[in-house]
Design a protein around this nucleic acid. Sequence first.
DNA 1: TCCATATACGGACTATAGTCCGAATCGGAT
DNA 2: ATCCGATTCGGACTATAGTCCGTATATGGA
Lengths: 224, 224
Amino acid sequence: MDDINGPKSGCGRGNGKFLPLVPSQAPLRADAQRNRRKILDAATGLLADKGVDGLTMDELARRAGVGKGTLYRNFTDKPGIASALLDDRVRDMHARMLQGPPPLGPGAPGGERLTAFVDAYLRHIAGNLDLVLLTESSSPKGRFDRQSYPFWRRHVEILIAEMWTPTAPEPTDANPSDPVRTRAEAVMAVLSAAQLDQWLNRQGRTLEELIPQIQTIVSVIAAP
Amino acid sequence: MDDINGPKSGCGRGNGKFLPLVPSQAPLRADAQRNRRKILDAATGLLADKGVDGLTMDELARRAGVGKGTLYRNFTDKPGIASALLDDRVRDMHARMLQGPPPLGPGAPGGERLTAFVDAYLRHIAGNLDLVLLTESSSPKGRFDRQSYPFWRRHVEILIAEMWTPTAPEPTDANPSDPVRTRAEAVMAVLSAAQLDQWLNRQGRTLEELIPQIQTIVSVIAAP
DNA sequence: TCCATATACGGACTATAGTCCGAATCGGAT
DNA sequence: ATCCGATTCGGACTATAGTCCGTATATGGA
């Protein structure tokens, strides 16, 4: 996603009104594109070699064979790199949500889709905790800045709206009411990476025992 | 709280089993105590003068007339200072929760106490957003490290436990079940400062319109 | 093919959090 | 009052994120 758009693409600068699809922006010069790939690859390698803590901007620049200026031309900041890395790993989940078979994709009732989403989302977060935490670092608000957050939240919002008015054939894609939005955000708060980290790595709980409990909580939040 | 205990008091290093009361630790030498006050006062002044962004460790040390070593002897890190500042402002809320009149204090049914707590807590967070965000910065996990988190969470946990088994005369102070704990943590996640900041300062909602919605969500999470 | 100009590159630079350790200081025991 | 050992002080130092700008390079038109 971040790959397709221009560098630092201010595209849809998170007013939350649109899904992060807006292509826009200049097409990115050939050499810049090459460098972008080099950086992403170097980041992947560095991550594999030294873990998240070993991922420093200087080292990354050195390993990618570019200057720091180039780093910051292509990515807004360190969390931005983590974000781009994650985008690669999440693209097909997005696709499955939008066009895949039910219950994750369209076709199933809202409640079931929500359950499927929570399951998939938690496993995604858990499988990439380090990166996601990095994404969300740089101030606690960081979490909401990333492109992906509006996407997830909006998805939940639409599903909840559908649960509240199952009659409407077309999902009320326009603007769900405040309470619906608040509930969607509450759901996302419960699913936050920091919270999951707390449960998994500090309290030593397992994903398998956690998921059912979280599913219960999410479903009562979403219920009308 | 942090004032009473020794500096960097590792007291109850957040296993979440005890309320943060454990006195323990050496009594702190006179000059150290003096310096601690100087630092806290300087921090308050600096905060008033230049806001959160102007609160740098160097400037704080200079203004307090101490070296940086002294800063870090008395406080673990920058969030630690914010935390100590907050402790001052929160002490009496703690007291009201533990010994004050119902419904915030003991005596009312769990559900009502929870409502009162949510209201008081949200207003507290909203009134000190900058400081709380600072407290929670330094990695997203920071939020769970601070002494106060276990206290709030445990309180919610106890109230929920009481709602689930209103028969038990003594609150099951020992160890609520996993699901109860998970729900308490879900509640705290919804009440997180980052989330509130998102609602208040980015979406431009008001506390007054938000509180009822959040109350509803919290009560469905807490309900058996 | 060559030129002009817009764009990207790279590394030196700044700002800031947090560490470390020799020197100074405290306060209780004599 | 004085001394001694434990404790604290203070500022130089390190590590790292992010900025800036002169220089190099790509691209499209003549």
